[in-house]
């Protein structure tokens, strides 16, 4: 219950961002929470927090819906170590920390050049391949690769500079 209350808003928002469909977003969030509750053995704290596990599941399943793919066809995003540590305990400081994290991420993403931001967002939230993005944006594939790389490197540096990435 606590897990749901804490992360349902973010999970639903990510699903809505990808799908733009409340009904499908609900389905995806339900599946993700069920997955986390029933596949306890699959959760490895060394690979990421519960939040990352959950949000990654929501993103991956949303993209499946969007692209009409089955799970086995998916190039699934893998878990990554968390930005800041996230315990499962209720803690006002933790909530503040999460909000600061989110502000920093918004600031970091907002500071990226528009074309770099577009490249990572089309991939992450749109589920488009680099070739599709090249076609959509009418630029060479090498340019798309470069934009993605630059965007993630800048994001990494920005967050590292604020002590949010333990590199």
């Amino acid at each position: 219950m606590e897990l749901y209350d804490r992360y349902a808003g973010l999970s639903y928002a990510v699903a809505m961002r990808v799908l733009g469909d409340p009904g499908r977003a609900e389905d995806v969030v339900q599946e993700a929470f069920l997955k986390i509750w029933t596949n306890a053995a699959g959760f490895d704290p060394k690979k990421g927090s519960l939040r990352t596990w959950l949000i990654t599941a929501v993103r991956n399943r949303s993209i499946d819906y969007l692209r009409g793919r089955s799970a086995h066809e998916r190039q699934e995003l893998e878990l990554q170590p968390e930005l800041a540590s996230t315990s499962t305990h209720s803690d006002p400081w933790r909530e503040v920390s999460l909000e600061l994290e989110r502000m920093a991420v918004r600031e970091a993403v907002g500071s990226l050049p528009a074309e770099q931001r577009q490249a990572v967002q089309l991939a992450y939230f749109g589920g488009y391949s680099q070739s599709e993005i090249a076609d959509m944006t009418h630029v060479p594939l090498s340019t798309v690769k470069g934009r993605m790389r630059l965007a993630l490197e800048k994001l990494s540096s920005y967050l590292l500079g604020r002590g949010l990435v333990d590199v």
């Binding site: 973010l10 928002a13 961002r17 339900q30 929470f33 991420v105 990572v120 992450y124 994001l155 967050l159």
Partner: peptide, 27 residues
């Protein structure tokens, strides 16, 4: 490893949306 940590931050830019109350029941 470095880029994955950055990519993991991307969903945090999304503004939270309160899901419908019925989703809680469904879950």
């Amino acid at each position: 490893a470095r880029l994955r940590r950055a990519a993991a931050a991307l969903p945090l830019e999304v503004e939270e949306i309160s899901p419908p109350a019925r989703l809680r029941e469904r879950v």
